[in-house]
């Protein structure tokens, strides 16, 4: 019931998410020659940097959409209405979160699908691992967006902080500029950003390196759990009188 209603609300305001899905496609088209030059004679390596890098970058922007959707609930006090009914807090959280998870997954699928269909991205061992990587990364984004909604005081604040965080994490994680080309200080910081592990989980899935993939996935799940804990702490707080 809650998930269906939330999905309806998401579809009522699709503009931002359409933007965050189409923009990376344009960027992929214009950046492909540049990445080809960075990886001479290795087109799959170039695509394995470009497509997941953009998937990571624009998932970070999509985090704002997740956060805004949940912040609306808090500011509009509809969360209180839901919490005042017989539904359990867990049911409400899952009902609110599922459509946003679906939204981020669709974005990631479109991006990787276009990379496959138009630019020839080919995972070494099929798409199952990549799908798993997309799921774990989207889960982390969802949880981080939920936590952002807990701390933001207004949509404008969330939007501004989201832009800064998305650009900063993208730049420092090696999602846009390959880590080997980053300045030393930035390269050292990279593993401390969630974007780095998002990129890793995708790249290891494309290369079918299961051990590294599991490690990156575990770190992303830990980030998701931590964010979810912060979000739940906020959602259970009583609001003003």
């Amino acid at each position: 019931m809650i998930a269906r209603h939330t999905a309806l609300l998401v579809t009522r305001d699709p503009g931002p998410m359409i933007g965050y899905t189409l923009m990376p496609l344009l960027l992929m088209a214009v950046l492909r020659p540049l990445y080809g030059a960075l990886y001479p004679g290795r087109p799959q390596s170039a695509l394995a940097q470009l497509a997941p890098g953009l998937a990571v970058m624009f998932a970070l922007f999509a985090l704002k959409v997740v956060g805004a959707g949940l912040l609306d609930e808090r500011i509009g006090r509809t969360w209180d209405r839901l919490a005042a009914g017989p539904a359990r807090p867990g049911e409400i959280l899952v009902g609110k979160a599922l459509p946003f998870l679906g939204m981020v997954l669709v974005q990631q699928a479109v991006l990787l699908g276009v990379a496959w269909a138009a630019f020839g991205l080919r995972p070494r061992d099929g798409w199952a691992l990549v799908a798993g990587a997309a799921f774990v990364w989207s889960l982390a984004i969802l949880a981080a967006g939920t936590a952002a909604a807990r701390f933001a005081r207004s949509p404008a604040q969330l939007s501004a902080a989201g832009d800064v965080a998305a650009i900063a994490v993208t730049c420092l994680s090696g999602a846009l500029v390959p880590r080997r080309l980053l300045p030393g200080w930035a390269s050292a910081v990279a593993p401390y950003t969630p974007g780095y592990w998002g990129l890793r989980v995708y790249q290891q899935a494309l290369r079918a390196e299961v051990g590294s993939l599991l490690r990156a996935a575990a770190i992303l799940l830990a980030i998701a759990l931590l964010s979810a804990a912060l979000a739940v702490g906020g959602s259970l707080r009583g609001a003003g009188r």
């Binding site: 609300l9 305001d13 209405r81 009914g85």
Partner: peptide, 30 residues
């Protein structure tokens, strides 16, 4: 809570949803 209906002082409805969709949601949750 299942036995209680509450309309708070501040407006707390889904503004982008129709009246019917709001009624369906809260009726369904109850």
């Amino acid at each position: 809570r299942a036995l209680t209906g509450w309309a708070p002082q501040e407006l707390a409805l889904y503004l982008r949803a129709t009246v019917r969709e709001n009624l369906r949601l809260f009726g369904g949750l109850a």
